[in-house]
Design a binder for these strands. Structure first.
Lengths: 249, 249
DNA sequence: ATGTTTTTTGCATTTATTTGCAGACCTAAT
DNA sequence: ATTAGGTCTGCAAATAAATGCAAAAAACAT
């Protein structure tokens, strides 16, 4: 078994269970405790997980490429995708941006669904090539390879002429008081612009982001219409959001 | 067994299993460990896989998906791609459009190449995500799923502000008297526009297209600077093109 | 076709990485 | 203080990678 393969399995397991223990892993993958330990150290150095005594836990943020290689979407994202589907009415126009969540959501779209999707996320457009009744509009601009999206002034200009029903916004960080945030400043500008072109905005969030704000603020809770998570809307972790009057699914 | 053929098998295997080990491959394909190792190095330089200790793993699953749709690169296209590479100088800006030939050409790009690529071909942009020194500009517009390219007025508008060194044009049909042609009318409009934004235009052609015009004419021979085929420039099949004064590689 | 040039291949040698293990070490709970 | 669980360090064996070279095979031009 290749070292990288093993490390990928560790990441998969962490993605599914949120935590792993070294002893369990070394038994399961049938390699020495030390090898696993060294793997975990390497992965931590690359920022892909957090090492704790006797094991490791998820790190809230994983770059897209790593997730993509994982192949199987984690169950949390599948739940979010299913809820999001209920939101969309046939014939509508929706705007989707970067990240893996939108990618999994469109993968869940039924093949016969009739829809127009506007996106700056190239993999997303390519995935939708298999859906004959979905019209796709690609926003052109400089290609930001890390997230496989386009950005820049050209994208902004194209948005000026658009009016969509929903904007499904992906975010990196979120906090009940501080609102939604990202790692990258330029992308916040883009997202703010996207919000303006949409009649309604929905944010899709994985649980670990709920109380971890990122560096650059996009907007406050009051600016979005709907929050979609994998949790039950009445879950305690969502209470603070609930109180601020945000609709939650 | 040809090198190209072997490399294709390696890519196929990686596409299926997400990983390969060098020892297994050298046994399976019955060539020395070193040859396989050198193949892997080459493929990595083109960004088609990631080399790891003892083997190789997939780089990103999307280009693989696209690749499967593309099928095996026939040796003719590989020859064309190699010739085209000689044309491009570091630091230039080139415009590439739809089709599989451009995709094979960019696959041949060494990873260190410095270049700006403008394209309406989404898989092409995604493939180039692994080339850190290549800047990619995506032309946005309606997505034509069949060819995985964008088209329409939006694309045209973006071209208005552009000026590139080379336009590598793909065509469906060609004839020494009638010039170059396509099956789709709207695409001819786009290609004509693309020609205007480029200082020089090169056409890449496979042999079977040399005397088979398609329905919609793009332009005459006099409008392109260079013709690239898999044949020797002095080949009899190219004589008529030669006579009309078209430069041939 | 035929000889020339270029590319590819396999091998031997050297160098580097990975792995498991043993023992020292740390820390917290008895 | 002792002990149990986990971590860290150094080491040696096994495995893999890089390098240089000569033979073989393709590709090329004449």
């Amino acid at each position: 078994m290749l070292k990288e393969e093993r490390q990928q399995l560790i990441l998969d397991k962490i993605g599914a269970d949120k935590k792993v223990t070294l002893v369990a892993l070394s038994k399961e993958l049938d390699v020495s405790y030390d090898s696993i330990r060294r793997d975990i150290i390497e992965l931590e150095e690359r920022g892909l997980l957090r090492k704790v005594h006797g094991g490791a836990i998820t790190n809230s943020y994983l770059p897209m490429k790593v997730r993509q290689r994982m192949g199987i979407p984690n169950p949390e994202i599948v739940r979010i995708a299913r809820k999001t589907l209920r939101l969309i009415q046939p014939g509508q126009t929706i705007l989707m941006d970067g990240g893996t969540t939108p990618l999994y959501i469109v993968e869940q779209f039924p093949k016969e669904m009739e829809l127009t999707v506007v996106t700056n996320n190239l993999p997303l457009a390519v995935v939708l090539a298999d859906h004959p009744h979905i019209e796709v509009m690609v926003l052109g601009g400089s290609f930001y390879k890390r997230y496989q999206i386009t950005m820049g002034q050209t994208v902004m200009d194209q948005l000026a002429h658009l009016r969509v029903d929903w904007y499904l916004m992906g975010v990196v960080g979120s906090h009940p008081d501080e609102g939604f945030s990202l790692r990258n400043h330029e992308e916040t500008l883009l997202k703010r612009r996207m919000m303006q072109t949409a009649r309604q905005v929905a944010v899709c969030l994985t649980t670990e982001k709920l109380h971890t704000p990122a560096a650059h603020r996009i907007c406050g809770l009051e600016d979005v219409s709907l929050l979609i998570t994998s949790l039950n809307p009445s879950d305690a972790q969502l209470a603070e959001y609930q109180e601020k009057g945000l609709e939650i699914w």
